[in-house]
């Protein structure tokens, strides 16, 4: 346990603190010309691609769950908890 905490402290000092410093310090130097429309909408569409991919996986899983484990499915069989009636 103690060695784990020690490791965590070392890790924090080496990686996390410089990262935080860097992250929070950004914003002081003057910027360059860029088209904010392009930059922001690109970010939006990148995130939408990921979101819709995950959404397809999750909703696909849900549709399959609902289809496969409904009690009217021919393959449905009683769960083992139904023998005792306790769940």
């Amino acid at each position: 346990m103690r060695s784990k905490i020690g490791l965590l402290v070392v890790f924090t000092i080496i990686f996390i603190i410089p990262t935080l410093n860097y992250a929070f310090a950004a914003g002081d130097e003057p910027g360059e010309y860029l088209d904010r429309r392009v930059v922001i909408w690109n970010l939006f569409f990148r995130m939408m691609v990921v979101a819709f991919t995950i959404g397809a996986v999750v909703s696909g899983t849900m549709v399959w769950l609902v289809w496969r484990f409904r009690e009217s499915n021919p393959n449905a069989k009683p769960t083992k908890y139904e023998e005792t009636g306790e769940w």
Binding site: T61, L65, V66, E71, A76, K77, T79
Partner: peptide, 11 residues
């Protein structure tokens, strides 16, 4: 989702 998995679901 994991609870529904392997159940016999009454809708």
């Amino acid at each position: 989702l994991a609870t529904m998995w392997g159940g016999r679901i009454k809708f």
